[in-house]
Nucleic acid binder design. Structure first.
Length: 415
DNA sequence: TCTGGGGTCCTAGGACCC
DNA sequence: TCTGGGGTCCTAGGACCC
């Protein structure tokens, strides 16, 4: 029995999700936009081919969109999240050892006698058959090599395996900046030392690496040699922070509009907190003016500790309001704002405060009822008044597809 | 004039990831 | 007119302690 790490990566995931429910788009270029329809965050292969860059501003690529008939979508996370679950559930049929790494990627630990390349192809085919999502599968002796193998796999019919025989060649062909864990800064520095491909990096001396780079780079080096160094994490680690932030459709100048937005973000973050059964011990708030407006720029943030860890929307909203009063400066065009809940603990980790006069059990019951109603009847059915009614600051989402898999009213129909 | 040695904890900022 | 959102880990340096 041999053990392999497999990385399964959904190809152009968001674009593929849109395509699954509109098969007529199969060979049509597609892009998916970020929140606020600001920039491109996913592209089908056809869209890449006509020159639309990752992260490009939508208004800048509009000429290309028109010229090539590119179909454009606002991001539909209700759909992508649900499709992701379907893919991950399918993968679990292959191995109980699964690390869900992101919305569109999972590592699997595979023990098999079979030819690993055959096995990888089987994974790819089954995910395609069960979900309609195309994936690339890479098999290798470490996670870093599996990542590399899956990239290679994308160009090779969807599956690839790195072994002793082909490893040197693959590493020689791989520039260091393409490696998982090596970003722009480290890549530049490595190149200055002449280590411009993954093979040369794998031959570097350990002490030399440690003297010049953080230990994360040494881990990458070991992984390139085929020694697993990056832990395989099946249990999702408990969150350390939760953030909710947005850019606004229009610049916000009015204090009350900004406050409404931040109260909404606070409620959203608190909801997530309760979903994970966590409590926050500090609240941080940030506001940013529009850096592109040509007007004076202001950005600031402030963090306050919470005397007793809490996940109560009303309590957190009160604190956020206090922080905002201290941060807000009149006369700026605010473009973005957000709330970060930090120092998260589980119920066991809550330190009681002798002088605490809040009936926390009662508040917890209130939050539980609110969450239940919002889950059954739709988000924001019950909300705090401070989070606003008209929401002039709302996010732009003009090209949204249907929530085909999570909303009865929006199910796919057959004409 | 000259001022040790060893340790921990916290924080901000950098780098990286999807 | 229009430029995303949400995370983690590591390190250096400061504060503080004996």
């Amino acid at each position: 029995m041999k053990t392999y790490y497999a990385l399964v990566d959904c190809n152009n995931f968001y674009a593929s999700c849109e395509r699954t429910f509109q098969p007529s788009l199969r060979h049509v270029p597609i892009v998916v936009l970020s929140n606020n329809d600001g920039c491109v965050i996913a592209r089908s292969e056809e869209a890449k081919a006509v020159g639309i860059g990752m992260g490009a501003a939508y208004f800048e690529v509009k000429p290309l969109v028109l010229m090539y008939g590119v179909r454009v979508f606002s991001s539909n996370f209700a759909l992508y999240g649900d499709m992701s679950n379907r893919v991950m559930t399918t993968l679990q049929e292959f191995s109980p050892d699964i690390e869900i790494y992101s919305i569109d990627e999972s590592f699997l630990k595979i023990r098999t006698e079979k030819d690993p390349l055959e096995y990888a192809r089987e994974i790819r085919n089954r995910v395609w058959r069960c979900t309609g999502i195309p994936v690339s599968v890479g098999m290798a002796p470490s996670k870093t090599l599996a990542k590399l193998a899956s990239k290679k796999g994308k160009a090779q019919g969807g599956a690839f395996c790195i072994d002793e025989v082909n490893r040197t060649k693959i590493l020689e062909d791989c520039p260091v900046e393409k490696l998982w864990g090596i970003g722009k800064q480290h890549a530049m520095k490595l190149c200055r030392w002449g280590l411009n491909n993954a093979h040369l990096l794998s031959k570097a001396d350990n002490n030399w690496v440690l003297n010049h780079f953080p230990v994360t780079v040494l881990r990458t080096v070991e992984e390139l040699r085929g020694t697993p160094c990056i832990p395989f994490e099946m249990e999702p680690a408990n969150r350390k922070s939760i953030c909710s932030s947005r850019s606004f459709k229009h610049d916000v100048t009015d204090y009350h509009d900004l406050s409404e937005a931040l109260m909404t973000f606070t409620a959203r973050a608190a909801e997530k907190l309760r979903q994970w059964n966590l409590y926050s011990q500090a609240l941080s708030l940030f506001i940013q003016a529009n850096p592109f407006s040509g007007r004076p720029y202001y950005a600031n943030s402030l963090t306050i500790p919470l005397p007793v860890a809490t996940s109560d929307t009303t309590e957190l909203s009160d604190k956020a309001a206090i922080v905002l009063r201290r941060l807000y400066k009149k006369g700026y065009n605010y473009k973005k704002a957000g709330v970060v809940l930090m120092d998260l603990v589980t119920e066991k980790g809550i330190q009681q405060d002798f002088f605490d006069d809040v009936d926390r059990e009662k508040r917890q019951r209130l939050m539980a009822s609110m969450d239940k109603l919002n889950k059954q009847m739709g988000r924001d059915t019950v909300r705090t008044l401070g989070s606003g009614i008209n929401r002039p600051w709302a996010t732009r989402r003009e090209l949204l597809s249907k929530r085909y898999t999570t909303c009865w009213q929006e199910l796919k129909t057959v004409d």
